[in-house]
């Protein structure tokens, strides 16, 4: 990270690089490998009932931060 701070001091990088922070790959959900369906959803007949049930379901309840429905 030092090179980014040096970049700011030298005038090559914007000030926000003074505050670059390391991310934890295990803790940050955005960095975990995402489950993707690729294009198997291209054909609508391949859609699972589970997906449509969820979207048709009236939202209710609350979530905690782990994303689990209470």
């Amino acid at each position: 990270m030092e090179k980014y701070k040096e970049g700011v001091k030298e005038g090559f990088l914007p000030v926000l690089f003074l505050y670059s922070g390391k991310e934890d790959r295990q803790e940050n959900h955005e960095l975990k490998e995402k489950k993707t369906f690729r294009s198997n959803l291209l054909n609508s007949s391949q859609l699972t009932n589970k997906l449509s049930e969820r979207s048709l379901m009236q939202s209710s309840g609350t979530h905690d931060l782990s994303g689990e429905r209470k």
Partner: peptide, 25 residues
Amino acid sequence: NSSADFKDFFHAFLVKKGHEVVNLT
């Protein structure tokens, strides 16, 4: 891409409503 987000749930919703839906990525 296709992932389990609003787009895919709404895709399924539209199919249930009787529409023909194609997702091109």
